[in-house]
Structures are given as structure tokens and as C-alpha cells.
Amino acid sequence: MEIDIAEMLRKRGLKVTPQRIAVIKTMIRGGHFSGEQIFSELKKTEPSISLSTVYNALETLEKAGIIRSFEAGGKTWYEMRMEPHVNVFCEDLGDIVDVDLDLGSLEKNLEEKGIQPKNLSVIVYAECSKMKKV
């Protein structure tokens, strides 16, 4: 299924810019990215792009609900996966692994306390070299 990135941006009231399209194209393949990783990737094909432009695009895309960010291992990470899941930060490998768990009871408990989560991010720090394949 091909995603129309320009239409995705327009639906959220955003201006369609080459920089935003490039950031989404980099992230759409999945995974977790730091701003520096996205910048390095884009610099190969867009030599005039600046790091501040990448971070401005990431901030705009996050505010529009297209991507989300979380902190792990002293960095901010960005991902396009918006549904609630667990991000496992592998301290020994430096990787981040998505784990699908039913977070419904956590959401329900929060809502019972009057908390309406906008972005449910669960970060687990672990040693992953001994982890079973997820």
C-alpha cells in the first residue's frame, strides 16, 4: 500500500515541503531514529539540508500526530508507529526493539484516575543479547 505523503500532510493542515516529505520517506520504512541519524541519511541525497531543518520538521510532524518521540539512552528517538506498544532499549546493544503487549489495562487504570493519555510510551531498559526473538 503506497502512502500519499503529501495528502497525509495536507489532511493535518501542514504545508507540503520537500524536507517534510524527505523526513517521512526516511522514517516510513519503520524503526527508531535519532535526529542525527535522519540528518545523516538525508544529507546523502539532500546536501543542502541542515540539522536544524530536520529537527524543525520532526517537531512539526510530531505536533501533527504523524510521528512520536521518546527518550531512551540519553537521546530522543522518533518513530512513525503511533499505536501503544513497548519500546525496549537494549543497553548492551544500543538497539531499540518494539514489543507488542496489551496495554489496555494500563490505559484503563490511567483513565480511572482522570488521566487521558495523548501518547502512551512505555520504555523498558534491558539487556537484549539474551532476549528471546520477539
Rank of each mutant, 00 (worst) to 15 (best):
R20N: 08
E46M: 13
T53N: 07
R29V: 10
F39L: 07
S50Y: 08
K15E: 13
V54G: 01
K25G: 12
I49V: 10
L51C: 06
V54C: 02
E36H: 08
Q37A: 13
I28R: 13
P47H: 08
K44D: 00
S52W: 13
G30P: 06
I38Q: 01
Q37C: 03
F39Y: 15
I21H: 00
E41R: 07
N56S: 15
Q19Y: 15
L51H: 09
P18G: 05
Q19H: 12
S50W: 11
I38F: 06
M27L: 06
K43W: 12
G31K: 02
I21R: 07
R20T: 08
E46K: 11
P18N: 09
E36C: 08
T26C: 03
A57W: 00
G31A: 08
A57T: 09
K43Y: 11
H32Q: 11
N56V: 12
S34R: 10
S34P: 02
T17P: 02
G30C: 05
S50G: 10
K25H: 10
G30H: 08
I38R: 00
K15C: 02
L42N: 04
S50N: 10
Y55N: 14
V16Q: 00
E36D: 12
A57V: 05
G30W: 10
S40R: 15
S48R: 14
T53P: 06
Q37V: 06
S34T: 14
L14D: 02
T26W: 00
E46I: 13
K44G: 02
K15F: 04
Q19R: 15
A22L: 01
G13W: 02
G31D: 10
L51R: 13
Q19N: 13
S40N: 14
N56G: 10
G35A: 10
R29S: 14
Q19W: 11
K15H: 14
Y55A: 06
G30F: 12
T53K: 14
S34A: 06
T17Q: 05
V54W: 07
V16N: 01
T26S: 08
K25F: 07
T17I: 09
P47R: 13
P18W: 04
V23W: 02
I24C: 02
S52V: 13
K43A: 09
Y55K: 11
Q37D: 09
P47L: 12
S34G: 03
T45V: 05
E36M: 14
T53W: 11
L42H: 04
T45E: 04
A57Q: 03
K43R: 13
T17K: 03
G13L: 04
E46L: 15
A57Y: 07
S52Q: 15
V16H: 01
G31S: 08
I21Q: 01
V54F: 11
I38W: 01
E41H: 10
I28S: 15
S48K: 15
F33E: 00
P18M: 04
I28L: 15
I38V: 05
S50P: 09
L14Q: 01
Y55G: 06
S48L: 08
T26D: 03
S48W: 15
M27A: 02
T17G: 04
T17C: 04
P18C: 04
E41P: 01
G35R: 01
